[in-house]
Amino acid sequence: MSHKNELTLSREDIVRLCERVEGAQTRAYAIPKLTDEYPAMTIADGYAVQSELRLRYLAAGHRLVGWKAGLTSKAKMQQMGVNVPSIGFLTDRMARPENSAISTADLVHPRVECEVAFVMKKDLHGPGCTREDVLDATDYVLPAVEIIDSRFSGFKFDLASVIADNGSSARFVGGGRARYVEELDLRTLGVVMEKNGEMVAMGASAAVLGHPAEAIAMLVNILADMGEHLPAGSFVMSGGITEAIPVKPGDSVIARFQELGSVSMRFV
């Protein structure tokens, strides 16, 4: 992968790769990472494929409900050799209700992460969006679990490929208790993820870029690079506080958050 962030793919290549990712997402099968075939793929190429994918889903009648930030922990960014998070889009088809049974038949190798989610009351435009701008534009925050599912074999990928695969977005569950940001210290919220009654992951919200609103600000600035903005009403997930935990049919998951209640689900 080139470190220069320029578009290298032709329009034809973008459509071809988009169809490949769409097939893998829709029919739940693993594909080799895209850079195996296009080793020069850049981050810009990844976002070009992701945008094509988003437009296709929207044309098919899916509703864009928001965005997600990924690779928001220092450890994950260092691992991928980047200093900015990645982003992906969220549609109504990915939403699952709290306390529901979530099918794994339409997923490849799902994993769950605890996140703080933001719901916006004002439009946000980059570049130059700051943490303070995000807090000012936030209607409320709530706890969420993201179910990520890389479509790449063995969860092995590079940054360009994972961005093209919409940041491994698959499903999400928002729930718990909605809160105003003024009433919370968003930096120090503790979380515990339990699977089948056992604690499997723990952390505090500062694991996300020191403060989850920082991740939303970076997301807005990446959107600006793509010529997009974050509209009022958007649901935005700020990135995993805890490591991603694999789930399979029969597993029951509960994410417990300080001040925000809990989000639970089971997998069938």
């Binding site: 515990v192 505090a204 500062a206």
Partner: peptide, 19 residues
């Protein structure tokens, strides 16, 4: 469920929780 944030020289070093 109280979070624990440990900073070293101004940077978040690690996080945890009472549980």
């Amino acid at each position: 469920l109280a979070g624990m944030v440990l900073e070293k020289n101004g940077e978040v070093h690690s996080t945890g929780v009472g549980a």
